[in-house]
Design a protein around this nucleic acid. Structure first.
Lengths: 213, 213
DNA sequence: CTCCTTATGTGTACGATGTCCACATCCGTT
DNA sequence: AACGGATGTGGACATCGTACACATAAGGAG
């Protein structure tokens, strides 16, 4: 059943960078089972170390899960950035802003469906995603998913594609909509949808949001 | 810390209706801690019975949690029904349909904020909320939350407040939006918002959805 | 180079949980 | 009155998170 990922019993007493190893093991566990699957003992096992060694690097299991969560959030940010980067160049600035906005949503949903475990881990008591800790939950561009969305909305307002009066707090509304669909697709009544159907739902949802902005 | 809810050691060997007692204990646990807080041994403890007695009524812990989930879903449905029932009578049918639609959303969000533990439990691998099992996850009127939403949308289309062309699959889009806000309010970055702010966010979100329909 | 401090990993142990197996107790039938 | 199926009990086991005491190595002070 389990992968038996024993990493060739090390010969040095010290591990070298246990913290990183535990983090990676934790991420791997989260990837296949969400935050609940991040079990401390299994992580130490995979790192080839005694269970208690983990306590030299993390206060407790929650601390480990929290760091895994931040890393997962960063992975989400990267997927969103990729989606935007893959956009074909557009002349019309309004069209371009709209495309970047939609890419935020599609990237978000793509990540949720591609890496459901990490997605769930990312939202495991993240709480302060909007606030601090940006450094750890940001993508390559140094921005968190929340900041990426905010920038896209600013763009829309900037080019007149969205009334400025609706800008305040808009990120939370958009985020709610897209996040909700992601959750329903992952382990709600919409799970098991074909990719094509899921994409269709995503398109419709983003259409609805765009009309409502 | 714990409430010490020991129910006066029963004198009969048989419990009478252990199944119901376990279900209620499970609901109480879920209420204060979500699905993860539903621990089998604690439920049996509260029912004044040995841990293994539970296995005469539930295949395993998951089965218990599942039933708790259905009950929580029914509670959600009831709250939504209440919200609609509390609506003042309106003459204009369009206005009335709109109000009923909004009540679906506000009821949903009210339940999420009032009973976060039950709300999370309701969505713990519910999967088939849209489909069968209606009997167990329905409210007083015999309808599941999903069915209540569908009816509200039918109403909107019926009185011309929403284009019929957008009706197909609309429940999933609306549901996504409202559900997403609920999640963000409960344990996402929006948790800890004042009631007034949360209500404001709910209003704005439903406005956005209504415009987008 | 040696010694000592300190960071890091080990071992043992405890309480809690889900669940299995064998046994006890009772209720409803025959 | 006897018996069989339903229901509850007791004991046991593996797994988990974590506390406490101890072992080991790495790096600076002398």
């Amino acid at each position: 059943m389990s992968e038996q990922v024993v990493p060739a019993r090390r010969r040095t007493y010290r591990h070298g960078n246990l913290r990183q190893a535990l983090l990676e093991a934790g991420l791997e566990l989260a990837r296949s089972g969400g935050p609940d699957a991040v079990v401390l003992r299994e992580a130490t096992r995979r790192a080839g170390v005694a269970p208690n060694a983990a306590y030299r690097h993390f206060a407790d299991r929650d601390a480990l899960v929290h760091e895994v969560s931040l890393a997962a959030m960063a992975a989400l940010a990267r997927t969103m950035e990729e989606e935007q980067a893959a956009l074909p160049p557009a002349d019309d600035p309004v069209r371009a802003a709209r495309a970047r906005f939609r890419a935020i949503g599609t990237g978000y949903l793509r990540f949720a469906r591609t890496e459901p475990g990490l997605f769930r881990a990312a939202f495991f008591v993240p709480a302060d995603m909007a606030e601090a800790e940006a450094g750890h939950s940001a993508g390559a561009g140094g921005r968190t998913p929340f900041q990426l969305l905010g920038a896209a909305l600013d763009d829309l307002v900037g080019c007149g594609a969205m009334p400025a009066g609706r800008r305040a707090g808009a990120e939370f509304l958009v985020w709610s909509s897209v996040h909700g669909l992601a959750v329903l697709l992952i382990d709600g009544p919409l799970r098991g949808l074909e990719d094509s159907q899921a994409d269709e739902a995503a398109r419709m949802l983003i259409d609805l949001v765009e009309r409502g902005l």
